[in-house]
């Protein structure tokens, strides 16, 4: 089950879609239960998430801290706005690197798709420049992952 899509939409949006073999309830739980989140939301190989706070209720806090085990790390904080169990999560988030990035408003939908789930994550950034900067920093992470693999090869 792959087929990730990542697209920009208009000036301020980024839309990611992905299909999963499991039903919406399981995918929703994997996005809201810290013990499950810590198993997959990790980024490049070698990174872990030692701190995972996810208070899945309106107004609840989000705090994720990642570490590469070599003194490197960054964090993300946010707040939940709306949750419809197993079908929809609306929250805001920002990265701290260490300065906080502008708020990213994220709506995540989990829709039944056969026996599985279609997830659609729609991010809304304050403006086109912020979106460009976010995509650029994401690229940095992607680059880091491939550099890390390259180091392994060399």
């Amino acid at each position: 089950m792959t087929g990730l899509t990542l697209k920009t939409e208009g000036d301020r949006h980024v839309v990611v879609t992905r299909r999963f073999a499991a039903p919406p309830e399981a995918v929703y739980r994997a996005h809201t239960e810290p013990k499950l989140i810590q198993k997959w939301m990790l980024g490049p190989a070698g990174w872990t998430m030692p701190v995972c706070v996810n208070e899945a209720r309106p107004g609840g806090k989000i705090r994720y801290e990642w570490s590469n085990g070599k003194g490197g790390g960054f964090s993300l904080t946010g707040e939940f706005i709306e949750l419809v169990p197993f079908s929809r999560i609306v929250h805001v988030e920002r990265m701290h690197m260490p300065d906080a990035t502008p708020d990213n408003h994220v709506e995540t939908r989990f829709e039944p798709d056969g026996t599985g789930t279609l997830m659609t994550m729609r991010m809304t950034l304050p403006d086109a420049n912020t979106r460009a900067a976010m995509l650029a920093s994401g690229m940095e992470q992607g680059m880091e992952a491939s550099y890390a693999r390259l180091e392994g090869v060399i």
């Binding site: 990542l6 992905r18 680059m143």
Partner: peptide, 10 residues
């Protein structure tokens, strides 16, 4: 590469 990093998570 960004897609690849997200894809690894999923």
């Amino acid at each position: 590469m960004l897609r690849a990093a997200l894809a690894a998570n999923y």
